[in-house]
């Protein structure tokens, strides 16, 4: 760092677990004490990530807690140790349970096996409880960022001698242009199609998740507004929701979720009341 220059916090990268998992290149620093950057197949230069997802597995021990947190296309592996600055985050993570939705900011640590395979885990700096809107927002932004990089890589691939300025003239940011160049340099011949399909899929799962959130709200409102003392009829809910563009399957899923979350209960067969 230049004397007098303010140390700036390195912003986190919002990438899907799949992009990280498929990384095979590390950009080592000349200073061995400095953790290397991970260069992903999309050219993203990663040291810190921010992601959210459901905790799908947790192993709590006195010295460390290990958790698996799933995003729409895979899983991040999170390790937090009971030492130094990490102990506060261990306490936070230990208050959570499998199924909880969390946002994690953390540094990525890599380990290369003797066979050369790279494994990654995240050392959390912050863990926050989160909700569906935050999850949808993160997925949307991570998906948008990945899609733009994929298109930039495609455009760079069309150029005889790709350079950042030419890509920026096409409307990509400096960072996106540099990602495209790194992808071409470090992952020549890498088949990005599977990654592309997984990322596009994350968008549809996001939309399903959003329409489910909308359906839950509408159905709960309908049940609360019902004046039938025996409870709101299932058939009435289905026909009302069809007018909103929701099919029977979506209504069933939303009713199941509302029941699981304790917002409604089934008074008698196919009749519902709000709690």
């Amino acid at each position: 760092m230049i004397p007098g220059e303010r140390r700036r916090r390195e912003p986190s990268r919002w990438i899907f677990s799949r992009e990280l998992k498929e990384s095979t290149f590390l950009e080592e620093s000349q200073d061995e004490r400095i953790r290397p950057y991970i260069i992903t197949p999309l050219g993203t230069r990663v040291k810190r990530v921010l992601f959210n997802g459901n905790i799908t597995s947790m192993n709590v021990e006195e010295d460390a807690t290990k958790a698996v947190i799933s995003d729409p296309v895979g899983s991040f592996y999170v390790n937090v140790f009971n030492r130094d600055f990490s102990s506060a985050q261990k306490i936070v993570l230990d208050t959570h349970a499998v199924g909880d939705l969390v946002t994690v900011v953390g540094r990525v640590s890599s380990f290369r096996t003797d066979q050369g395979t790279l494994y990654f885990n995240v050392l959390p700096e912050y863990i926050f409880p989160t909700d569906e809107n935050a999850r949808s927002y993160w997925t949307l932004m991570a998906q948008s960022s990945a899609e733009r990089k994929l298109v930039a890589i495609r455009e760079a691939g069309k150029m005889e001698k790709p350079d950042a300025l030419s890509l920026m003239k096409l409307g990509y940011t400096e960072d996106e242009a540099e990602c495209a160049l790194r992808s071409i340099k470090h992952y020549p011949g890498f088949d990005l199609n599977a990654l592309r399909e997984a990322i596009v899929g994350s968008g549809s799962s996001l939309q399903v998740s959003q329409s489910l959130t909308n359906a839950k709200g509408l159905i709960l409102e309908l049940i609360k507004g019902s004046s039938d003392p025996k409870g709101c009829k299932y058939d009435d809910i289905v026909s009302a929701m069809e007018k909103e563009g929701l099919d029977r399957g979506a209504v069933d899923e939303a009713l199941n979720l509302l029941g699981t979350e304790g917002d409604i209960y089934e008074v008698s067969l196919k009749r519902f009341k709000a709690i």
Binding site: N133, Y137, V151, G171, Q210, N214
Partner: peptide, 19 residues
């Protein structure tokens, strides 16, 4: 705080510029 309506707007804005 971001809600469902804001998400729709962000999605529309993010779509712009991607072919």
């Amino acid at each position: 705080e971001i809600d469902v309506e804001t998400l729709k707007r962000i999605r529309a804005a993010m779509r712009m510029g991607i072919d």
